[in-house]
Design a protein around this nucleic acid. Structure first.
Ligand SMILES: NC(=O)c1ccc[n+]([C@@H]2O[C@H](COP(=O)([O-])OP(=O)(O)OC[C@H]3O[C@@H](n4cnc5c(N)ncnc54)[C@H](O)[C@@H]3O)[C@@H](O)[C@H]2O)c1
Ligand SMILES: NC(=O)c1ccc[n+]([C@@H]2O[C@H](COP(=O)([O-])OP(=O)(O)OC[C@H]3O[C@@H](n4cnc5c(N)ncnc54)[C@H](O)[C@@H]3O)[C@@H](O)[C@H]2O)c1
Lengths: 205, 205
DNA sequence: AACTATCTGTTAACTAATTCACAATAAATT
DNA sequence: AATTTATTGTGAATTAGTTAACAGATAGTT
């Protein structure tokens, strides 16, 4: 892992990789910065700068060798070991996001999912869906360190406390509640309504 | 609407409003910048600056009057008329996002949803779910100008072309495909995998 | 009435992110 | 061999976003 990459660069590197994985690099093994930039609707200088930051160099004429680039992005942003993710709340949203993991061969792995006490335990996409009462124990046991929260706002505070106690270090939060966590825990909030309201503002001719 | 607000400010204003709507302002009608900032985990100067940009002033001692602030945020970022949103793809993800509208009284309204030819038309949360073959016609007819795309990557290019032709001006894109649209169309991409990989990077002790 | 404490509004400083612009390079073409 | 063309790598410039700092205001306190 390469230290001190800017957050936006990390996010873009992840995007480059996903884009390149679905690119026909068997036939076309090289790609130019402007081509990749175009696919992602960003500036070519941006691509070159990001790759510079991870020390990946291309050929002045052929461009970047895709297969090698995919590997180097991995070295730059992935952890050595698999990282385990817990999903808390497996409603419509949780299901949709958890499913997205199937199409992806990253270092991230859905290690457990949880839902309400009242509902029976099930097998969800080869992963067990536990009763939330077992959450703390399971997270500890399995050494899970990332969590996706997709449950009704009401329970969020309590749940957050539990999972942070159990050792979770990063949370992707889909509720509109803002989480109370210690400094050391990294939270990424995502609220679709604010994205839509932003769209609405910027498209008002 | 107040012109030329920075994108991040628009997004934060939307967040302030949602947070304030769930705040007990009947009992506590005023709020200080640092309190609101704390609830959203941001810097108090940020709150003050954003409110300055929309020309909203508070009381030096009491703080900001919440009910008025909610209204002024509306004046700053909402359009006069209701904006109609179409959902294209009503799988797990589409359903989850569309449902989120129920809990929200913004100027945005789900006007139609669409899904594949093979599936029957249904009523989804008081909104009709049409066959995608009627999409262009319906979007034109209902003057829909925002769209949320949550369908398999395969069909995205074709669908994008159709909806842009039909008059859509802003798209919230959940697929990992990057959309080909004219300059005038505002696209907001969201890819959860890259957010998770970012989490993973920044929590690797 | 003077003093203290606190909070807003705003400027200025700072930091991060993006884009420009061009030297260096080398393939392709004349 | 000289010229043209295209592309990388990168310093510098630019732009956007965030935070610090503080004057001015005023309620509360001594
Ligand atoms: N960020 C966004 O823009 C966005 C979009 C859509 C939904 N959401 C939010 O995501 C959340 C989930 O949405 P959804 O449509 O999937 O809801 P849903 O009702 O379909 O599912 C909720 C799930 O959470 C589980 N759950 C409830 N309480 C729980 C608890 N205490 N512990 C563990 N599991 C619990 C339930 O078993 C259920 O599976 C809601 O808060 C919703 O507001 C956010
Ligand atoms: N951005 C993210 O991080 C993220 C997360 C989860 C899912 N996704 C993506 O969102 C998409 C949907 O995910 P999902 O779990 O809801 O899938 P899903 O299979 O549950 O639902 C897909 C829906 O799209 C509809 N559909 C398919 N082809 C269509 C077409 N040509 N026109 C109109 N409708 C069509 C189907 O009828 C179905 O309702 C997928 O592309 C998935 O990869 C993205």
């Amino acid at each position: 892992m390469i230290e001190n990459l800017p957050p936006n660069t990390v996010e873009r590197l992840s995007n480059y990789r996903r884009k390149l994985l679905s690119y026909p690099f068997q036939e076309k093994p090289f790609i130019h910065s402007h081509r990749l930039a175009h696919l992602l609707k960003i500036n070519p200088a941006h691509v070159r700068r990001d790759l510079m930051l991870i020390g990946f160099t291309g050929d002045v004429h052929k461009g970047y060798e895709i297969e090698k680039l995919i590997i180097e992005i991995g070295k730059a942003i992935d952890c050595q070991h698999k990282r385990k993710v817990a999903f808390i709340g497996i409603g419509d949203l949780g299901r949709a996001v958890a499913e997205a993991f199937n199409h992806d061969d990253s270092k991230l792995e859905v290690a457990a999912t949880f839902r309400l006490t009242a509902e029976p335990e099930i097998q969800f996409q080869n992963v067990h869906c536990y009763n939330v009462s077992k959450m703390k124990q399971i997270i500890r046991q399995k050494k899970i360190d990332l969590a996706v929260i997709a449950l009704p706002n009401a329970d969020v505070d309590e749940i957050t406390k539990l999972i942070v106690d159990a050792g979770v270090k990063g949370i992707l939060n889909f509720t509109s509640a803002h989480l109370k966590v210690p400094e050391t825990v990294f939270v990424e909030n995502y609220d679709m309504m604010s994205k839509l309201e932003k769209l609405s503002y910027f498209t008002n001719e």
